[in-house]
Design a protein around this nucleic acid. Structure first.
Lengths: 331, 331
DNA sequence: TTGAAAGCGCTAACAG
DNA sequence: CTGTTAGCGCTTTCAA
């Protein structure tokens, strides 16, 4: 049974430096005013003991958390890692720490995650989307912690909301295709039940078509996460059914890239024979032989802004960061 | 000055339920044995007060952390988000929480992150790579916290190491190309100074060439993060200099995909005229018109294993999860 | 400018 | 099975 040589504590430092505990605490936090001598002695002691403050104790004593929770549905494509990176960037810059949770697009799991992170008494929560279980929404509303819901502004938020309108994205996409003269438009998408933002894009898209007296000619939706492979397979299916489409709207760039690959391998001319339109504005789209026509959003910025707002205690608000239509060569 | 209606505490629950604090603590943690009646009363009180335990206090009291820190260099391509997802999966399953840090491939920043997460007294640290500043390595060694270094086993680890040999990856890649008869092989890569694993792959690759009396015919390296666009531009540059190459080894799949796009747009036949070989085994490679020849690694698994090992208090070890060469259609 | 002391909310002996 | 009682390591009055 060996004694675990537990780390030095603040009172060890105080003893070593020959000062009181509160003095050590003050120099560590740069608070109050300390004499040069005391400060020097404390700093020397800290160095000598290789002291690392225990923020757990600090948080408990001060009631002030310096953790910010980030809850995202997935890390499998580039979208949420970017949001996470942006949020973490702001969080670290503020001297806070990120605690993350991944819900796998499962709202019950998300609820459990919220409960779990709440037990860490975070300074704030950044969470993707506006849709939550009733209970989760209640917790977010009443937990006394600032929350920023990100990536979607189509709906009612609990507190701070930072994102863009998915419905507007869908509408803009449809208008672009219509303007370009496409008339027999199909849709290729992934799990619309779980990815509510993809669903909203499709709603906006359909609405804009309807405004012109048009409608989707056909659609192929697979109940899985988006992926390049899924996009390729889906477009293949769609075209066997509806060979006469002149354009396809994809649920996102990954799916669209898959569709593009299908066209390449089948010798389907893009966009003459078939136009393709995506969503996200991933960098990869710009490097394709033909730049992908898509809509770009600022995911890093959204994460950064959201985290900044929750930490700064801003008033509840809705920040629409907008989006940008990229006229590529595929539509 | 309004009173902040601070959250109910465990002693509130105890009072409400008419039991002692430790009883509440026991039912909350499922520890010891409690009478059905007491348990019921406590549970009712918890529900009535909407009580959320304060794990900050819990950690401080029990000396047992339930945070695990994950430090990665980047979240910009799919590689580390996958590792993170794997680690987080194991961490959540164990009832722990992930705290993350992103070092941006900057070792000084990484050192600061280590110091920061250490102040949270995590149960363990999962960190990418074997290379750290001297000071960071010292902290990892002496902090009394289990650490798992991931994604690389070519070098000396501090404690637990989970990954694969980048040099072996490079060697296997070279052997494959040699076997296939390629003789004028070039290299296209990204920032080798910061991405030490890419550097090790290149070393292994060059070594294997040397064993056959061969050497890289030419190389094009850009001092930026890898990206599809960088890969495309680099290959273009390389080929203007060395038009007679018959194969190119890329620092990873993103770069290789960019190279493939260049070939497509220039009508360069793959692999007849130019063979391409990548690294990572991203899903996208399988959906390309011609499947990308590459080496696949299990990133989710690596994160999961690493987190599992640090949390379970396994003995220091090196776990080589290996890799798999994927014979695609590009080389 | 400094130190002493009282907690922060919880867990972990230790008695009953 | 259950309650009482010390702390965990730090911050924060409050005096000095």
């Amino acid at each position: 049974m060996s004694e675990r040589p537990s780390r030095p504590t603040l009172s060890d430092v105080a003893r070593e430096a020959g000062v009181g505990e509160s003095t050590v605490s003050r120099v560590l936090r740069n608070a109050g005013s300390i004499s040069a001598g005391a400060r020097a002695r404390v700093e020397a002691a800290v160095a000598r003991l290789d002291y690392v403050p225990n923020r757990i104790a600090g948080m408990l004593a001060s009631e002030g958390s310096s953790l910010v929770a980030i809850i995202v549905p997935s890390l499998s494509n580039n979208v949420f890692p970017k949001v996470l990176a942006g949020a973490d960037h702001a969080i670290e810059a503020a001297g806070f720490q990120s605690v993350v949770g991944v819900s796998d697009y499962d709202l019950d799991r998300e609820e459990r995650l919220i409960r779990a992170v709440l037990s860490w008494r975070p300074a704030g929560i950044v969470i993707a989307g506006l849709e939550h279980t009733a209970h989760a929404a209640g917790m977010l509303r009443n937990c006394g912690v600032r929350v920023a819901e990100v990536m979607d502004i189509d709906g009612a938020g609990v507190d701070i909301v930072v994102g863009f309108s998915s419905r507007a994205v869908g509408r803009a996409s449809a208008r672009h295709l219509i303007e370009r003269g496409y008339r027999r438009i199909g849709y290729v998408g992934h799990d619309v039940e779980r990815d509510t933002r993809a669903k909203k894009r499709l709603e906006g898209f359909s609405l804009a078509l309807a405004e012109q007296g048009m409608r989707l000619a056909d659609r192929e939706i697979v109940p899985v996460l988006s992926s390049v492979e899924a996009g390729r397979a889906c477009l293949a299916n769609l075209l066997t059914r509806s060979a006469d489409l002149d354009a396809v709207y994809f649920s996102n760039d990954d799916m669209a890239l898959g569709g593009y690959f299908h066209c390449l391998s089948q010798g389907i001319g893009v966009p003459q024979r078939l136009a393709l339109f995506g969503f996200n504005g991933l960098d990869i789209g710009r490097a394709m032989p033909q730049a992908l026509s898509t809509i770009k959003t600022e995911r890093f910025l959204i994460g950064e802004r959201a985290a900044g707002l929750v930490m700064s205690g801003a008033a509840p608000c809705v920040v629409d960061v907008g989006f940008k239509l990229i006229e590529g060569a595929t539509a």
